[in-house]
Design a protein around this nucleic acid. Structure first.
Lengths: 125, 125
DNA sequence: CCGGATCCCCGTTGATACTG
DNA sequence: CAGTATCAACGGGGATCCGG
């Protein structure tokens, strides 16, 4: 596929494709949950501890969304007290690659972006 | 770099890296503007036409942000009527790759995600 | 332990009107 | 043509309390 055709993937259908994925992962916590779940199943409270700043409510909502999308599996153990474990599905694991690519881009270009900010803000507007 | 270390890029610093990039491109219009600008400089009104649904205000805000980030260049021609052209910078062009990777993921997995939605919604909750 | 339900704040977006 | 100014609507997300 040519570079041009690939870019059309973003613009295709009035941007509905890219909007879909951004609605899915562009929020505050989804990618952090996916990354935290990468390589190890984990229970609710442990996710809560490992993701600094997230609230119970937002963790619940994020996990529900991911479960509905089929990216995260949820297992309930019939015990007292209750135990629930989460893990990435096969599909969920395929998301890690593109997400990491984006994070690498961010880390690599952050310095020049910050320099650009300083240059921009010191000009008059 | 190992897969584990890459995932740490996402989680690193309490997720500040990934939060930064998502704040930058996770909004409604930024990636669409970048994709539309890919391969061709363009003036304001043409962008407005090519991106269905965007308002003058949001296009302006999005372009300003991208300019401040150093991802888009802005050229003003001293003419009457005024003419302003926008184009991706070298840095801006490097963003296209990871963005396209994400769009490809979205297009490829959309069918199964929709199936997952139907399965999830038909179960009781 | 794992959530569901509620209330509320505030940032983002959009519509509209105006200007150099 | 290429914006700016202003106002209103909307929804994400946090705090808190309650329940199985």
């Amino acid at each position: 596929m040519s570079e041009y055709e690939k870019v059309c993937l973003i613009r295709g259908d009035g941007g509905r494709a890219i909007r879909g994925i951004l609605d899915r992962i562009g929020d505050k916590w989804t990618l952090l949950v996916v990354a935290t779940l990468h390589g190890q199943r984990m229970r609710f409270t442990e996710l809560l501890r490992r993701i600094p700043g997230i609230s119970q409510r937002m963790l619940t909502l994020t996990l529900r969304q991911l479960e509905r999308d089929g990216l995260v599996g949820r297992t309930v153990f019939a015990e007292v007290p209750p135990r629930v474990e989460y893990e990435l599905t096969a599909t969920g694991r395929t998301l890690v690659g593109p997400a990491v690519a984006l994070a690498e881009w961010a880390v690599e270009h952050n310095p020049e972006i910050e320099r650009s900010h300083q240059a921009y803000d010191s000009r008059d507007h």
